[in-house]
């Protein structure tokens, strides 16, 4: 059985200073199960994830806190240690380095730290890791684009905007970089594309 009183304490404690820490936890989809939660992480500054809000699916196994919580990114993210396909995370404290003295908050803070310091030598996504090691600038651009496209609430409809501009006859890669440079503003991107 999940230690309910501990989890409740953790939720209160974590959300008390979420404005400063940048991490918060809520029941999954406003549901009623204490063992299915959703965490959010603010993308760290000076990284390609800056400005994004990343959602994490959290499932607590029956043995929690003696077993680690199961965490997975819901928000798509381009990072060597996070699967670009399904959001699976490669982080030791979520596996064999878990300790019951850790909490959901410290685990989310560790994920935030992981976003700041990728470990490409121990990858979860080999394609992303290869790109990180061989072509850092493309990596940074892709990671930034994914943050823009998937981790910003005002970026909903990004793919529609891309499609619309492509249909006007502009090449897709130019459309994407134009949209990115103007923070997804369709009209400004169009202006940029026309003047280039």
């Amino acid at each position: 059985m999940v230690d309910v009183s501990r989890v409740q304490k953790e939720l209160t404690e974590c959300n008390r200073d979420s404005a400063i820490s940048g991490v918060s936890i809520a029941l999954h989809d406003g549901g009623s199960s204490i063992s299915h939660l959703t965490g959010t992480i603010a993308g760290p500054q000076d990284t390609p994830y800056e400005g994004g809000t990343f959602r994490i699916d959290i499932r607590l196994p029956g043995g929690y806190p003696f077993e680690p919580p199961k965490m997975q990114f819901i928000t798509k993210v381009w990072h060597p240690n996070i699967s670009s396909q399904n959001g699976a995370i490669c982080l030791d404290i979520l596996k064999d380095q878990w300790s019951p003295a850790l909490t959901l908050k410290t685990a989310l803070l560790s994920l935030q730290a992981l976003l700041s310091t990728p470990a490409p030598d121990d990858p979860q996504d080999a394609v992303v890791a290869q790109q990180y090691l061989r072509d850092k600038s493309t990596f940074l651009n892709t990671a930034r684009y994914w943050t823009e496209a998937f981790a910003k609430s005002d970026s909903t409809g990004m793919e529609e905007k891309v499609q619309k501009l492509v249909e006007m006859g502009f090449p897709e890669d130019m459309v994407r970089s134009a949209l990115l440079s103007v923070n997804g503003d369709e009209n400004m991107a169009l202006e940029k594309l026309c003047s280039s």
């Binding site: 230690d3 009183s5 501990r6 304490k9 953790e10 806190p65 019951p100 003295a101």
Partner: peptide, 13 residues
């Protein structure tokens, strides 16, 4: 207690 987060002067769950 660092495991259950309850007060030491209280008891475990």
């Amino acid at each position: 207690c660092g495991i259950c987060r309850m007060a030491f002067d209280g008891c475990c769950p």
